[in-house]
């Protein structure tokens, strides 16, 4: 399969997974289960990642610019870095590593054990039954996780600035809020929405397309993570170009 046929197949798969009769009454529980698995399940690792993101970005920023600019610029720089780039990207990459692989493995196993064929036999649309809840759940969870990550990263950054750089919270907050642009905030969240679709679609696609046995399932999980990671960076650039370019 060359690149063009892969992109065509992937896009068709995504559209096919979304444009189905949603049957919300029956799908609701499956969506909630997936939100629990993707959103709440990823929360601890996202918080840990966000704490260190805030700390490291404060250390690096202060190392590079302190002494040559007013101290409140530390708050401005960290705020914009976290909102525009670090928050959405790191959250998406973590969710990709944790969930895209799991989706591919789960659906792939169902494929090789012919459970998906069984669903079709019972007149249950596997796209609606397996893919739609995962896509919707990821679409809801990733922006929420991004917001939490941003909040935690800014909090840890402010903490470090206050305790180790002698930058009072008020000064940090002044830099953070004074140069705040709503575009930065919403731009980061729009990125998160695109990343969510890429993560869920890649996980489901590679799981759905498995042919063979356990080895192929493992390979599908790897492909899902690699493809979603590349897709995240690609969409990061594209969205940045449209919103901030």
């Amino acid at each position: 399969m060359n690149l063009f046929s892969f992109i065509g197949d992937f896009s068709t798969f995504l559209v096919r997974s979304i444009i189905v009769p949603w049957k919300f009454k029956t799908t609701k529980w499956r969506i909630l289960q997936q939100i629990y698995s993707i959103g709440i399940g990823s929360l601890p690792i996202i918080v840990v990642i966000a704490v260190f993101t805030g700390l490291v970005s404060t250390v690096q920023t202060s190392y590079q610019i302190i002494g040559s600019v007013p101290r409140y610029i530390i708050g401005t720089t960290i705020g914009r870095m976290v909102m525009i780039e670090l928050g959405p990207i790191l959250t998406a990459l973590m969710v990709s590593g944790r969930c895209a692989s799991s989706m591919a493995a789960e659906i792939g196993t169902m494929r090789v054990t012919e459970q998906i064929d069984a669903l079709e036999t019972m007149a249950i649309d596997p796209y609606r039954f397996l893919n739609l809840p995962r896509i919707i759940a990821t679409f809801i969870s990733v922006p929420i996780l991004t917001i939490i990550a941003e909040l935690v990263a800014l909090g840890s950054g402010a903490f470090y600035a206050n305790h180790f750089l002698n930058i009072p919270f008020g000064v940090f907050n002044y830099g953070l809020t004074h140069f705040f642009y709503a575009r930065d905030f919403f731009g980061g969240l729009i990125k998160a929405l695109f990343f969510a679709i890429v993560i869920a679609a890649a996980g489901c696609y590679f799981g759905f397309k498995v042919k063979g046995g356990a080895k192929e399932v493992g390979r599908a999980a790897t492909y899902a993570v690699v493809t979603s990671s590349i897709g995240i960076l690609l969409f990061d650039f594209m969205v940045a170009l449209v919103i901030f370019g």
């Binding site: 939100i35 629990y36 929360l43 969870s141 922006p143 929420i144 917001i147 939490i148």
Partner: peptide, 9 residues
């Protein structure tokens, strides 16, 4: 989780 996300937003 969802309500917390909205409130935090």
């Amino acid at each position: 989780f969802i309500i917390a996300g909205i409130v935090l937003f």
